[in-house]
Write a protein that binds this DNA or RNA. Structure first.
Length: 499
DNA sequence: TCTGGGGTCCTAGGACCC
DNA sequence: TCTGGGGTCCTAGGACCC
């Protein structure tokens, strides 16, 4: 545990509303509410003038309008918020290289990572925190609240303590004393459900929470969270400020102003959402393996259904059908087969950096279809047959053979490119995926073969147990047969790749 | 009052493998 | 021959945050 409170949390005050007020002087000093303005909208941010009327985040806009009809109700302009956010984050990066943005309006920074080692005393920290706060105001015209502590938890709670425009520094050694009188709800991660459970054990303040034993908390809240809260209530928090956290999932969802009442409307909506999420996935430079569909019924019953593909992909021709396979079951479960759907969503997780693995996912996806079609049982150690489909353009795969590049192939004729070491069928059931596929990147086992007609590739991958050989075939009667021997020969040395 | 949209992390059970 | 335990993956749901 560090002695100097060198972790800072910077939190912009009523950020979205403040940006709007800066943008439009006529809104200054007036109640401003930013959020969904439609029938089913909720408040994202209320200006301090609006909070006086009891308006707060996550409140239905309809309620807010009743409480303060004269406020300005504005739809969020994320582009504008993003720009201001960049200015703030840039400023913080001038102070220290260790900046962890939490959201558009919030970040942790670690002063101990400053080139000169950072401030050595509480007073130095206080002076620097004030200077940062002043600079934010100068450069953006907006105010921020700053908290400083020896841990993320304390810094976060401190920034919230004197909002707006607060600056609270909690000296090393005084954390526990400072936290004790606070309601448990102030601790980061304690929401309504946890607070309720703690209340049953008689704990409403941090001091009372601290009187509980670790085993009591674990019994109440589960292993991870119980233990964590036991330590947090003592000001013990060794989480680092980490600048580049990986994205774990991408998702898109819509609440519809009027419930969707029939299957065609639901399927059309899910297709549109899936297209959007794939676009976002590609923009982020990722591929993903698991598709999740979310549905919420008229009575707010919310369910998810998910499916994991064999390998990460960003191909809409695999992802959209996956979403469509899931949506009927999800919608039925959310509505009890009656009434409408108020929300639909599509998410993709199991992300990987974009790699050529998506092509293999494509092949696997097609294999799954043929499985259903012919019902042919797979033999031990043998992969599913793969049927080429119209238009499987390999697109941006590095080194992929585009359909048009296959000599003599009509443009509508599919070409299939196999990369090696091609994932090996696991017990004949499915392709090894994800991490295994990454072994396929370049190297002596790299296989590329374009197949027209029936192409059967026998191969062994780096992880193939002795004696297990996968078989891969592409079958389309409309195509000319090609010699598969070359592909097969190229595939076999793949065995050496993994050593 | 009637509940957004984007995320993260955790739990628990079942399948499967060794 | 019968039974066991641990690890990993997948799915579904829930709590929480901004």
């Amino acid at each position: 545990m560090r002695a100097v409170p060198s972790i800072l949390h910077i939190d912009m005050d009523a950020f979205f509303a403040a940006v709007e007020q800066r943008h439009k002087p006529s809104l200054r000093g007036k109640p401003v509410v930013v959020g969904g303005v439609g029938l089913r909208g909720v408040v994202s941010t209320a200006s301090y003038e609006a909070r006086v009327y009891g308006i707060g985040s996550a409140m239905p806009t309809a309620v807010a309008r009743r409480r303060c009809p004269n406020a300005a109700y504005l739809f969020p302009r994320f582009g504008a918020y993003h720009e201001v956010s960049q200015v703030v984050m840039g400023l913080l990066r001038e102070v220290t290289p260790l900046v962890e943005p939490v959201s558009l309006d919030e970040a942790f920074i670690d002063l101990a990572a400053m080139p000169d080692g950072g401030p050595g005393t509480v007073e130095d920290v206080r002076a620097l925190a004030r200077r940062i706060s002043d600079q934010v105001e100068q450069r953006t015209g907006l105010t921020a609240s700053v908290g400083a502590g020896t841990s993320k938890l304390v810094a976060k709670v401190a920034s919230d303590a004197e909002k707006p425009h607060g600056c609270v520094v909690v000296a090393g050694g005084s954390e526990q004393e400072w936290l004790d009188p606070l309601p448990v709800r102030k601790l980061w991660g304690v929401g309504p459900a946890t607070a309720d459970r703690l209340l049953k054990l008689g704990a409403t303040t941090v001091a009372q929470l601290r009187a509980l034993s670790e085993s009591e908390l674990v019994g109440l809240l589960g292993h991870a969270w119980g233990g964590q809260l036991y330590r947090l209530s003592r000001g013990q928090d060794d989480r680092e400020v980490s600048p580049d956290r990986e994205t774990k999932s991408v998702s898109v969802e819509d609440t519809y102003p009027h419930d969707l009442m029939d299957r065609p409307a639901i399927r059309a909506a899910i297709t549109e959402l899936a297209e959007r999420v794939v676009r976002r996935l590609k923009e982020s430079g990722h591929t993903g393996r698991t598709v999740t569909v979310k549905a919420r019924g008229h009575d707010f019953t919310t369910v998810t259904r998910s499916e994991t593909l064999a390998a990460p992909t960003d191909d809409p021709r695999l992802l959209i059908p996956a979403a469509l396979r899931l949506v009927d079951g999800a919608a039925d479960a959310a509505t009890g087969q009656m009434h409408g759907i108020r929300l639909l969503g599509v998410g993709i997780s199991g992300l990987a950096e974009y790699a050529q693995g998506d092509l293999i996912a494509e092949l696997e996806g097609l294999a799954a279809e043929e499985d259903e079609a012919d019902g042919e049982p797979e033999r031990e150690g043998e992969a599913a047959a793969v049927r080429a489909q119209p238009d499987p353009a390999p697109s941006a795969v590095p080194g992929a053979t585009a359909p048009s590049a296959v000599p003599g192939a009509p443009s509508a004729v599919p070409a299939v490119t196999l990369y090696g070491p091609v994932p090996v069928a696991s017990e004949g059931r499915r392709w090894l995926a994800g991490k295994d596929v990454r072994h396929a990147e370049r190297g002596p086992g790299w296989v590329q073969g374009a197949g027209l007609g029936r192409v059967t590739v026998r191969f062994e991958g780096p992880d193939t147990p002795p004696g297990r050989i996968g078989t891969f075939s592409v079958d389309d009667p409309a195509l000319e047969p090609v010699d598969s021997a070359e592909v097969a020969r190229a595939a076999l040395p793949a065995r050496a790749v993994g050593h």
